[in-house]
Design a protein around this nucleic acid. Sequence first.
DNA 1: AATATAAGGTGTGAAAATTACACCGTTAAA
DNA 2: TTTAACGGTGTAATTTTCACACCTTATATT
Lengths: 230, 230
Amino acid sequence: MEEKLPTFESVFSIDCLIFGFEAGELKILLIERNDEPFKDWFALPGDIVKQDESLDDAADRILYELTGLRDLQMKQFHTFGEVNRHPQGRVITVGYYALIRIAGQKELRPVSQYARKAIWHPVNSLPKLAFDHTEIFNNGFGKIRRRLNYQPIAFDLLPEKFTLTQLQGLYEAILNKKLDKRNFRKKMLSYGFLKELVEKQKGVSYRAAKLYKFDRRKYAKIFQNELTAS
Amino acid sequence: MEEKLPTFESVFSIDCLIFGFEAGELKILLIERNDEPFKDWFALPGDIVKQDESLDDAADRILYELTGLRDLQMKQFHTFGEVNRHPQGRVITVGYYALIRIAGQKELRPVSQYARKAIWHPVNSLPKLAFDHTEIFNNGFGKIRRRLNYQPIAFDLLPEKFTLTQLQGLYEAILNKKLDKRNFRKKMLSYGFLKELVEKQKGVSYRAAKLYKFDRRKYAKIFQNELTAS
DNA sequence: AATATAAGGTGTGAAAATTACACCGTTAAA
DNA sequence: TTTAACGGTGTAATTTTCACACCTTATATT
């Protein structure tokens, strides 16, 4: 690879971990690079932060450009600033993540010129990624795992109405371990932020399960009480 | 203030929360600014990241320049990138924190030209800070509080040998609430990473307390087991 | 109609962790 | 000797966590 690439002095970028849950598996959105460096490699979707946009705005814009989704909360998790993490110059990148519902989503857009296509890839068998993106992934995924134990982040990955078995499957996919069915259900219901619906699951060839919704209001109330109590 | 200040396009900086514990109070290191903007205001110590240093290296350098301390671990906690957070241009700043022992420390150095002096200020009565530094402080302090519950970060603030009462006082200072003496001691000792010394406290006008050390080895062992068990 | 398949849904007892709570002992200074 | 100040200790009630197995329901198949 002997072409001469342009270099740059000091650039800010954002790289995104966009998680989805599909077919019982936790997946992440990767793009296949069209340009050097790392042409044809998989990489995390990312972009440069513009002069007139905040980090959070840039993260929202990038997610929108890649998936057509708006108004999701992208959350920052870490900033990566090794001197040689990018071969063309000094690029400091802020890692953001989002958890989204794959189902009911429009087709993934054809992405910007530097990416050939975007795919959902299971997190358990990621290929080598461009740059230091594997490290970025490990860092962010680790934080999400830990956060799962005290924040209701799983619900962003599920359809609005879901069964307890689906919820448990998602926890198992994120934590990568089996959970006990009875204890899981007992605990989840004890929080008091799940709303049982009259409606049941449809289209399954076995006994239909009850559907539940995550009740953000109740959650906020409980959470506020916890804060003021401490 | 009608002077014309220079402007810049895109700069990376680091701002530091340097915590210390003195006289039963949790304190933070502030500098008093010597230059515009925010001349005479208190601010967090910080500096620009150089082209050829990583974020972590920059954080270590800044701490060293300010305090003369080396080899402490500065930890990143959040990156702040609002467009107008700095009046002179686009400055994105990475927040780092460190917990250090005030006692036994050399005098605080006279700091770089932009700072008149550095002081230890109790966290419970902070003045208004320059830029968005109050927000940076709140963000970082909140993270440290939460981290205290599952990481042995408090020991960095204490002298190497300390009494359980001192340790409890520190927890109370960080969490800003009273703890039960018997339960606190029972729990701390149950972790198994405190080493009881033969030596006792000296120079107090009441019964001398036993001294303890934090045993990093034992902690590492316990922590590793927890990781592999999950 | 009977049967097979696949998941839904439920309770209890043991163990561990958390919480609330009060008094005597020791040291040095007055 | 007395006082002031902190050191140091145990128990019982409650809550949380964990391990564990079977019957029920709905659909598809024969």
